[in-house]
Design a binder for these strands. Sequence first.
RNA 1: GCCGAAAUAGCUCAGUUGGUAGAGCAACGCAUUCGUAAUGCGUGGGUCGUCGGUUCAAGUCCGAUUUUCGGCUCCA
Length: 610
Amino acid sequence: MTEELLKIRHSASHVLAQAVLRLFPNAKLDIGPATDSGFYYDFDVDHKFTAEDLEKIEAEMKKIISENQRFEKFEATREEAKKLIENSGQGLYKLGRLNDIPEGAPISFYKNGEFTDLCAGPHVDYTKRIKAFKLLSVAGAYHRGDEKNKQLQRIYGTAFESKEELAKYLEQQEQAKLRDHRKLGKDMGLFAIDEKVGQGLILWKPKGAKLRQQLQDFILELLRQQGYEQVFTPHIGKLGLFKTSGHFPYYKESQFVPIIERDDLQDMINCNASVSTFEEKIENGDAQGFLLKPMNCPFHVQIFKSDPHSYRDLPVRLAEFGQVYRWEQSGELNGMTRVRGFTQDDAHIFCTPEQLDAEIQGCLDLVKNVFVTLGMKDYRVRISLRDPNSDKYVGSDENWQKSEEAIRKAAMSLGVPFTEELGEAAFYGPKIDFVIKDVIGREWQLGTVQVDYNLPERFDLTYIGADNKSHRPVMIHRAPFGSLERFTGVLIEHFGGNFPTWLAPEQLRIITLSDEVIEFADKIYKRLKDLGLRITMDDSSEKLGAKIRRAELEKVPHMFVIGKKEAAENKVSLRSRLRKSLEGVRDTEEAIALILDNIKTRDLGDAFTS
RNA sequence: GCCGAAAUAGCUCAGUUGGUAGAGCAACGCAUUCGUAAUGCGUGGGUCGUCGGUUCAAGUCCGAUUUUCGGCUCCA
């Protein structure tokens, strides 16, 4: 974003606040910054802003802009500032904001027309510089982002340097909606979410299942190459298992309520136990029960523990497409990208401390391989470290330092820029995450690699070293996709539904021109079926144009069009929406070979290679 | 969970101040056998998300509830 655009957006937020004050003089202002995509301002008003209010506010803003007021900056001492804010009647939030300014730092205000706001700037010089803006929506937002505080009304808007750019942005937003995985997932019959089944629970329909199976097979192939072994574990485990791992009761808020054994449940009902007694008994082990698993690690740990291990066995790499369940807040659920039941392409590596660096490296190679194969370039890498001032983390300082160092070293070797974020680590260890944006600009964490010294400790994992003594292994948690649900959601948007042939639910459609060629077409259909291709045949009596249109709308990557001419010469007319260079009337076998090659090479198509 | 908006046919949507639900596409049937993004005609399809209330009468008004959407908070 240019400096000028930043100024325009920030100034627009001031004008927004000014307009709101003109229309709602009792409004209390909190804060109004520029953002990556626009600006907002938070208000505390009794009146609930409606869509019509936004129009009125927008009109008032236009008036202020046409008044061409000058933005003037002035500095004040802390005392003067305090007095100024109090006199303006805006002390409720602004005095707190004033206190945020560190001692010794300059305190400045910006004034335009009748409006003055505590602000570090910068701003445009005159309101007329705000040439193109639009108010977009109103939403609730907690003061200082803390849900314990009052929820204010936030008005979102956006602004650009020119009307053309604004129009272009709004058009892009409209276009983006067409790629939304929730829309495409429905239109293309990939998945469904059903009110009766439950929120945040994905039903993979046959076409989506085909896509998912291809992704799983792809991952399995990579895992075999890297020396992983596949395991399967149950969806529930005893509460004690998760107590040992530390996940229960500390994260009970984000888990489904435990399944309590019938007898214990009956006992508690018999003695009229209150909810708190109930919870207490579950937590201290007086009541037995099971937890719907929120993660797979404890199960893999127990698999590791079921055999004695020598240093010669390590690393042990256990992989599973493990379905986990988490109690996400209802307001957070979102299509396939934020759900309550999801499948991690999970694996846990148990290795010696000496092997750690190489193993992390191996995990990152895997993630990179996945991203390159799918043509995903627009991601960012984040390393998540511990917040040194928080006590939510487990494990010794020494181990944390070791693992943070290992993670940082691995991230540096990636050769792509990364950010370090304090306080983002898992409670048991630091991680490297791969983060990608969806069509409307929201970020989602996909692949993750996490180092863990804690679980081996808690489960007392050991291996026998070359010195014939017991040693503690290190664990790595890793998931290159993160979850198949989220990844698929992001992937639908990434490809806009135009999947490469190897992933497409339907890879090829045979389209006949008349009934006379059905026999010939059917032979090809059977041949392709035998080759394992996912194909259908459209021998309906519609016109060719209509059949092609339908295949295009259904985003089938390739079509074999067969008419009398082709049938007579054992040819097909190949039409490809993925790769134009494949098109043409070709010998049947040649066309088939081209399709098979397109699958084998996992061709991303013209859109990704032009 | 919180703030706001929404829910009408498989899909996209219309439905006047309350008077007994409509279009396009899709589906199905018949005719058509066609050369690279829409052949024509016909037919069926809705407890208006759910429950309750007001009313002679509710898709329309009121309440509750479920779900979805945009944010906020959260995301081991």
